[in-house]
């Protein structure tokens, strides 16, 4: 009967395993280690039975405990909603000024409004509500349809030229395309409009344009060009131009008109979210 080989250097038995002349010393593992390994195997069998484990062709074994990470996510979402419901109920019951006056509700609305804004409004108005040509900057103090909480709230609900029955709506004639004004007259009006906000304008042309403006434009934009929130007519005397403040841009608007569209959110978002959005937009800096 063969006895284990003794390593001549260490005096320890070898296991008899050899790899390229290197032999393994027999340093036995403790038995409890082996038992831990068996315990893990038993645990894993229990795990297979209790938890979702094995992939099948089009499904997987569900396990007896019925655990599912989807359920966990759904539950935590439901919990989050339940935690929010206290706030949402208060928002539903409260008017906009009341929301703004309550620091906790204000904080909640600002956070919720910011999230809803990112999901629904940012594609046009930009992530920072900074707008773009044709899409108003909501940070500034200039409002086509009014910048009070209630005005913003209404605009959000009904939209602009959205097709909603109460939608904010108006139409500026296309003075050039519909041949209401001659190109020379349009040029004169452009000079006048430029002069309203201190732009670079020809004084003579502006004087001629002033007459045309009084006939054609003042009905909506006002004699002084300060616009009208009731009609949604922009103020032409300030520094803010939705479609650009250059001579070319202004001429283009007079010639072809513009009619921006914003959807009505009343049917799309819950009323609490629209209230949160109104408070959020109002807080961006231009709220009146």
């Amino acid at each position: 009967m063969a006895r284990p080989e003794i390593d001549s250097v260490t005096g320890v038995e070898t296991t008899g395993h050899e790899w390229d002349g290197i032999k393994e010393l027999n340093k036995p593992l403790p038995k409890w280690w082996l038992w831990v390994f068996y315990a893990c195997i038993i645990w894993s069998i229990g795990y297979w039975i209790a938890m979702p484990t094995w992939p099948l062709v089009s499904d997987f074994t569900k396990g007896m405990l019925g655990y599912s990470q989807r359920t966990v996510v759904a539950n935590s979402l439901a919990n989050a909603r339940a935690a929010q419901s206290g706030f949402l109920d208060k928002i539903a019951a409260s008017d906009l000024a009341g929301i703004k006056a309550d620091p906790a509700l204000l904080q909640f609305s600002l956070a919720g409004g910011a999230a809803a804004f990112g999901d629904n409004c940012a594609p046009c108005h930009g992530r920072g509500a900074q707008g773009a040509v044709g899409y108003p900057n909501l940070n500034d103090d200039n409002w086509l349809w009014g910048g009070t909480l209630d005005d913003i709230h209404k605009t959000l609900q009904v939209g602009i030229r959205s097709g909603h029955e109460d939608a904010r709506d108006n139409a500026m004639p296309a003075f050039g395309r519909d041949q209401i004004l001659e190109p020379g007259q349009i040029s004169d009006v452009t000079d006048f409009v430029l002069s309203l906000s201190g732009g670079d304008a020809n004084a003579e042309a502006a004087a001629r344009g002033k007459v045309i403006f009084a006939e054609q434009c003042a009905a909506c934009h006002g004699e002084d060009g300060k616009g009208s929130i009731e009609l949604g007519a922009p103020n032409l005397t300030d520094r803010i131009w939705l479609y650009g403040g250059t001579r070319d841009a202004i001429t283009d608007v007079i010639r072809n008109s513009r009619a921006g569209v914003m959807p009505a959110w009343k049917e799309r978002l819950p009323p609490e979210t629209i209230k949160q959005l109104a408070v959020f937009v109002h807080s961006l800096g231009g709220g009146q």
Binding site: R127, N139, D141, I240, G286
Partner: peptide, 8 residues
């Protein structure tokens, strides 16, 4: 975002 806002 925005870096600054121009007022009317």
């Amino acid at each position: 975002n925005p870096l600054f806002v121009e007022l009317s």
